[in-house]
Amino acid sequence: MERHEPPLSTQRLFRMVVLDIDGTLLDPSDVVRPVVRAAIAECRQLGVPVALATGRRLCATRPVLAELGLPLPLVLVNGALVWDAEREEALAERPLARQALARALAEAEREGLGALALRGLASGERLVLVTDPLPALPEFERELLPRTGELDRLPAAAVVDLPDVLTIDLFGPERALRRATARLARAGLPVYHHGPFELIPALPRWVANVHAPGVSKASGVEILARRFGLTLEDVLAVGDGENDLPLLRRAGLGVAMGNAPDYVRAQADAVVRGHDEDGVAEALERFVLEPWRRARSLA
C-alpha cells in the first residue's frame, strides 16, 4: 500500500480530529479496536477534541458512542444534522426544500429508481418509502422493516410537502442512478454514491444520498470547529469514502484510509493503513500525538 507523506508545511499542531465511522473508525468486524480507542483517548487528554462525521443517522450512531463510552460531537447524515452528544441537542439541521425534493423525485421517476426519505429529529428520524409513481420495492420492506421497526409509505406528492427530509436515498442500476445523480449535481444538489446497497447485498441496486445545497461533512464540521474557536484548517480529518471527500479537501490535513478507493486516496494529503490494520491509530499517532509530544518536550 502506498504511503503519502504530507509536506513539511503541514507538520503542525492540529487542534481537532474528525473521524469517519464505517470503513475508518470501525474495523471489518464493526468494532473499535483497543489501539484506536487508546489513540482517541490520548488526543482528548491533550485537549484535542475528537468528533465523528458519518452518513449514518443519530439512532444508528448511538451504539458507536456507547462502545467508545464517550459523548463525542457528531456530524450526521453527511452533514445534514450536527449533534451535541454531551447536551443531547441539535446544533444544526439542514432539510431539503420543497423544490429540491421535487427535483430529486422527478429524476427518480424519470430513471425508474426507488427512493427512501429520512426525516429529521422532530419526526423521530422516520424512514419513508416513496411510492406512486415510483416503483414498489417489496424487498426493501421485507429487509428494512425488521431492521428498523419503522417504515412509513407515502406517495411522491406527499413526500414533496414534508418539511424535514434530511436526505433522499435513490436506488437503482448503476447506470440509471448515475444519469439521475449527474443531473441533480448540475442542479446544485450534493450527491454521494455508495455503490451496491449493503443491507441487501443480493440486490443489483446502487445507492446514492441526495442532500440540500451546501450540505457536506465539511459544512457540518465547520459548525463544530467554530464552537471550539477553530477553523477547518485546524482539523485533521480521516475517511475512506466519496462522502468524505469534501472534508478531506478542506481540512488542514485530509487523510485517506488504505482501504479507500483509488480516487479517494488520490485526493487525500496522506494515506495510512486500512481499517483492518488500525489505520486511524496510525493517523492519530503520526499527525497529532507525535507533534504534540514534541512540542511539549520543547516547551
Score class of each variant (00 low, 15 high):
156 A>T: 04
299 A>M: 05
158 A>P: 06
8 L>D: 07
253 L>S: 07
136 A>M: 10
31 V>H: 11
219 S>P: 14
218 A>R: 04
62 R>C: 14
46 L>V: 02
154 L>M: 11
225 A>F: 03
118 L>Y: 11
23 G>I: 04
213 P>R: 00
136 A>F: 07
208 A>Y: 03
64 V>T: 15
46 L>I: 01
280 V>S: 02
198 E>D: 15
68 L>P: 03
26 L>H: 03
262 D>V: 09
111 E>C: 10
203 L>R: 13
156 A>W: 01
15 R>E: 02
233 E>W: 07
52 L>W: 08
129 L>G: 10
252 G>D: 07
53 A>T: 02
209 N>P: 04
284 L>C: 00
189 L>V: 08
235 V>S: 06
19 L>C: 06
97 A>I: 06
54 T>M: 15
38 A>F: 08
71 P>H: 10
254 G>P: 04
245 L>G: 03
116 L>D: 03
197 F>E: 09
111 E>R: 12
73 P>T: 12
16 M>F: 02
44 R>W: 01
124 G>M: 14
125 E>Q: 13
72 L>H: 06
296 R>L: 08
191 V>M: 08
68 L>V: 05
93 E>R: 09
115 A>G: 09
197 F>T: 11
255 V>S: 01
252 G>Y: 00
129 L>M: 10
288 V>D: 00
259 N>F: 04
251 A>F: 04
266 A>W: 08
275 H>F: 09
151 L>T: 03
100 A>S: 05
257 M>L: 09
107 E>A: 13
199 L>T: 12
7 P>V: 14
207 V>C: 08
144 L>Y: 05
102 A>H: 09
237 A>M: 10
14 F>E: 00
96 L>N: 02
75 V>A: 12
215 V>H: 01
256 A>L: 01
284 L>Y: 05
109 E>Q: 13
176 A>M: 08
275 H>T: 11
88 E>F: 04
200 I>P: 04
210 V>K: 05
144 L>M: 09
183 R>N: 01
52 L>S: 08
195 G>I: 12
83 W>C: 08
270 A>K: 05
39 A>I: 14
174 E>G: 03
51 A>S: 10
130 V>E: 06
114 G>F: 13
278 D>R: 11
105 L>A: 03
134 L>H: 05
53 A>L: 03
257 M>V: 04
281 A>D: 02
197 F>Y: 15
7 P>G: 12
111 E>V: 11
97 A>C: 06
75 V>S: 13
100 A>H: 06
61 T>D: 13
125 E>C: 13
92 A>F: 00
60 A>N: 14
18 V>R: 14
289 L>T: 13
131 T>M: 13
296 R>M: 06
14 F>L: 09
242 E>M: 13
134 L>Y: 07
206 W>V: 01
285 E>K: 07
224 L>P: 06
285 E>P: 02
276 D>P: 09
213 P>K: 00
55 G>R: 07
87 R>P: 12
297 S>K: 14
77 V>S: 13
290 E>V: 14
102 A>T: 04
285 E>V: 09
72 L>G: 07
116 L>T: 02
208 A>T: 05
204 P>T: 08
112 G>N: 01
21 I>V: 11
